[in-house]
Design a protein around this nucleic acid. Structure first.
Lengths: 352, 352
DNA sequence: ATGAAAGCGCTAACAA
DNA sequence: TTGTTAGCGCTTTCAT
């Protein structure tokens, strides 16, 4: 099919090593460089990354494990990360796990088998064991949106607790006292963090934290809708609700829609994550936003950094990969103000 | 690092070819099979796909070129395709082009260079030349959502024209006469098809097709919003609007939101693509839906089919790859009824 | 700076 | 059925 370095060698009368050296930033005499470049042009030569990978044991490929590709939050992160990785010559293999623990393990195994150079993981479940294989093999792992105690890897987090606290405080400041929360699954890191922020805001303002005001919605649209319904039933006096991820925000809006409740007259709402959705809602939703672009960028950059400096540290006879120092980056969240929060302190005015 | 077939050979006392044969479905004596399996177990052996790829010239990797990963329509398709491909042992390399022609070409080159076995393309622009390289190399290309005259490859389409026609007819049946359309870019296949459907519906019902009723919104949220504004300005008498993709639907909703117009009292709306968004809207939106799961499934299956039967046809000394027969699958769209269409024939009743 | 040669882990042709 | 052997296209010593 394609031409090989051998062909280039023959064509130029040079040795194989010289050609290889040319492609790897080695020194080649000006004269020969030109010859080589001519040959490349004429033969349409492209380095065979597969052969190179076999020899160097580096595939220039990064694995990405993600709970749902079909989820804007994750999709935005990946878009950014993939962009950066590709611009540095790394291909990206994406595995969608459909939020399933079993699939997540399979994905990790699959990528390990494919010998990716490193992975970016947004874990749904407990794929710790499978991921540990990468660490042991000295392959960098960057975890997003979650921290796992027993997995020594870099992490990119956002200030979940602070973001939730801030959102709830806004509701309190607007005069709300009976504030519901639609929380995520108890076994998900971000869900716990956000719930903690909710509680903290209440406590700091001397409000009791009534458990019946927290409904769990497992981060899905259906879950958000069900949680909303339950909250309304058990707490007719609830005047505001904080919803802690995007899918559940959509679900809650559907339910509010079905119930015929008016925002913000009947209930004040602060949602999560998707600015476009928030702006298209009637009325515009106030939401917490996450810096998806930065997350993706950080993840890619940290990974590349590790990848490109690894050789040095490894050949320096460094400590076991398990003990390598890791970084945890925590990014700030944002807040986009809509018209979905009613200010109870003024006479029926609506303002966030 | 990992064990190799050589290690297995030594451990079992068998020859290399036997081990290889074992992994490739060859016949191995029961006795030896057990020995091999024991060795695999003990040595944690995994076939090195890279080495295999070098030898067989097949990477078991599929490239996917997509305008925007951050777009539910495409994300859903990919989720499905990736799932099927991975279950058959194929890895998926995704390239997001951010709807940019140049990036699209780069992506195709990148994937070609990475020697993927085939590609699934959702083209934004005219990457025809770059894709032609795959065809010439005998590598299957499956195109989604678009047809290119000069590129002999399989296509998965949906009935764009029919879907638009049906949507507009619903508006006509509800008594609307001044029906606007927010159309996509003129150089995009689906946009042209949908516009044709709109016109057809009008013509078949004896309605004149006023060009000022068509606003172009380049398939983005901002474009949809701008187009909506323009339509309202130039056509104060417009009673209904058909929006021809998801992003523009969101944008139009934002604008309607800003303008303080009421659906369906002031204007009837039929949007596109995202059921969840439609249900979360107030009132629920009527929309055209596309069978994203089927599209992804078809694409993956067709690709695999070509991949697994290629050897036969090729070694049968078949015609040039350029002339290979291609398939075009056209899938039906759906319609989800909301409450966003007002029936002008009854007294102010709202029904789609 | 360049060339010769070995070998990365695998498959496949051929022999046995 | 199994073993021997020759590469796939590249990188990388080691000489020169």
């Amino acid at each position: 099919m394609g031409a090989t370095m051998k062909d280039i060698a023959k064509r130029t009368g040079l040795g194989l090593a010289t050609i290889s050296s040319y492609f790897n930033g080695g020194n080649v005499r000006e004269k020969n460089r030109i010859k080589i470049e001519e040959a490349i042009e004429e033969l349409h030569f492209e380095v065979n990354e597969v052969a190179r990978g076999l020899k160097t044991n580096r595939t220039k490929t990064i694995g990405i494990i993600i709970p749902e590709l079909n989820n804007i939050f994750f999709a935005e992160i990946i878009t950014e990360a993939e962009d950066i990785l590709r611009s540095r010559g790394y291909a990206t293999m994406i595995c969608d796990c459909r939020s399933d623990n079993e699939r997540e393990k399979e994905a990790a195994d699959f990528l390990y088998h494919r010998r990716v150079d490193g992975v970016i993981v947004m874990p749904a479940g407990k794929s710790g064991d499978a991921l540990m294989k990468f660490i042991r093999a000295g392959k960098p792992v960057v975890m997003i949106d979650r921290k796992m105690q027993d997995l020594p890897c870099d992490c990119i987090l956002v200030e979940n607790e602070g973001a939730a606290e801030d959102a709830v405080r806004r509701l309190i400041d607007a005069g709300h006292r009976r504030i519901g929360m639609i929380a995520g699954p108890e076994d998900v890191y971000t869900a716990r963090e956000r719930q903690r922020g909710y509680k903290k805001a209440l406590e700091e303002n001397g409000l009791s934290c009534d458990d019946s005001l927290i409904a769990r919605g497992n981060y899905t649209i259906a879950g958000g809708a069900a949680a909303m319904r339950k909250l309304r039933e058990t707490n007719p006096d609830m005047t505001a609700v904080f919803i802690s991820n995007y899918e559940m925000t959509v679900g809650a809006m559907m339910e509010i829609n079905d119930l015929g409740i008016k925002i913000p007259e009947d209930i004040s709402v602060i949602g999560f994550d998707n600015v476009d959705f928030a702006k298209a809602s009637v009325p515009r939703l106030s939401i917490v936003t996450q810096p998806t672009d930065k997350i993706g960028r950080e993840a890619a950059n940290i990974l590349i950094e590790k990848l490109e400096t690894r050789e040095n540290s490894v050949q320096a006879g460094e400590k076991k990969p398990e003990d390598r120092t890791t970084v945890t980056v925590t990014l700030k969240t944002g807040f986009v103000e809509g018209k979905s929060v009613r200010n109870l302190r003024q006479s029926g005015c609506t303002e966030a």
